[in-house]
């Protein structure tokens, strides 16, 4: 009886602790989400006394998908961007986290430096960066053009081609190398998550495998990789969302134009972003179903 009482008291305390979120979720987030769905299938009439909605069915969805000149193409493009970027970001951040986890001189300095992109490639700064990349003009103002200048000196592409590697793979690798600046900027949080995951692996596993005489390579695939795999899923999900919501995303640009000045139309805005969200959700479901089969959960914790 007493045990039950403690249990229910703990449950109540738990609810008290998470109550700010519940309030925010119900009154701000969920409300906005539902209203967003309503906006997207209504005409909105704004007056001094607020706004009124007139049901319009799927007119706006039809409009953006069938009539709008560029929305479809932007959707496909941003999907393509994401599919190209996600594996690169995951591989890069995993590799970097493994390296930052080793002991070497100047490690703390390097760590400090490597996490600066988390801080510097957000919000307005990210937007400014893309802006200057688009504008050109000032010689070398856009970092990406000057960096592809560096990689141009060392012709990776033709070296790989002469090694008889399929042209498509070569193209993927070289474009990855050329967009390394972008990849670094996208990888900050993922590196952090992987580093946390790596440090949570108990050293006793490595000790045991050292006794069995395992090599570093075997350790990598038999211990490190399975133990980190749940976080790969986390990171993939985060990367997909991040790349979908960043400013250099074509659909984001469409949405920005709709939400500006005279062309401001809430129905367009919400229906565009809803279709977009459904696409992300679909992609995330597919990815997580595929990945969760490969994920190893250490359940005895």
């Amino acid at each position: 009886m007493k045990h039950l009482k403690i249990k229910s008291r703990r449950a109540a305390a738990g609810y008290v602790f998470i109550s700010p979120f519940i309030a925010g979720f119900l009154f701000i987030f969920l409300y906005a989400l539902i209203t967003s769905v309503m906006f997207s299938c209504s005409d909105i009439l704004i007056s001094d006394n607020g706004y009124t909605l007139k049901f319009a069915g799927i007119k706006y969805f039809k409009d953006i998908l069938l009539v709008h000149p560029t929305y479809n193409r932007s959707l496909v493009n941003s999907l393509k961007n994401t599919l190209v970027n996600v594996p690169l970001v995951i591989m890069f951040s995993f590799f970097m986290a493994v390296m930052l986890n080793q002991k070497f001189k100047g490690r703390s300095f390097v760590r400090m430096l490597f996490f600066t992109p988390v801080i510097l490639s957000t919000g307005i700064l990210q937007k400014m960066d893309n802006f200057s990349a688009l504008q050109g003009g000032l010689s070398g103002a856009s970092v990406e053009t000057s960096i592809s200048g560096f990689t141009g000196i060392f012709d990776l592409g033709s070296i790989l081609l002469s090694l008889n590697i399929a042209p498509k793979v070569v193209l993927y690798i070289t474009s990855g190398v050329e967009s390394i600046y972008q990849i670094i900027n996208l990888s900050g949080i993922q590196m952090l998550v992987f580093l946390m995951a790596l440090q949570s692996i108990s050293p006793s596993l490595y000790e045991a495998s050292a006794i069995e005489g395992a090599t570093a390579w075997e350790n990598m695939w038999k211990i490190t990789f399975p133990m980190v795999s749940p976080y790969i899923l986390t990171n993939v999900v985060y990367t997909v969302i991040d790349s979908f919501t960043s400013y250099n995303n074509p659909v984001m640009e469409e949405i920005q134009t709709v939400s500006k000045g005279s062309s401001l139309n809430y129905s367009y805005l919400t229906s565009m972003s809803l279709v977009y969200f459904l696409l992300i959700a679909l992609l995330l479901i597919v990815v997580s179903v595929i990945l969760s089969k490969a994920v190893f959960y250490n359940d005895n914790k």
């Binding site: 989400l33 809430y266 977009y276």
Partner: peptide, 23 residues
């Protein structure tokens, strides 16, 4: 509730910004 926390992270702010503005 934890799944709902993840949902707030998953939904891009662009989806809900118009109703939030109105609110």
């Amino acid at each position: 509730w934890f799944a709902m926390v993840m949902l707030t992270l998953l939904i891009p702010p662009q989806v809900i910004i118009a109703p939030l503005y109105m609110k």
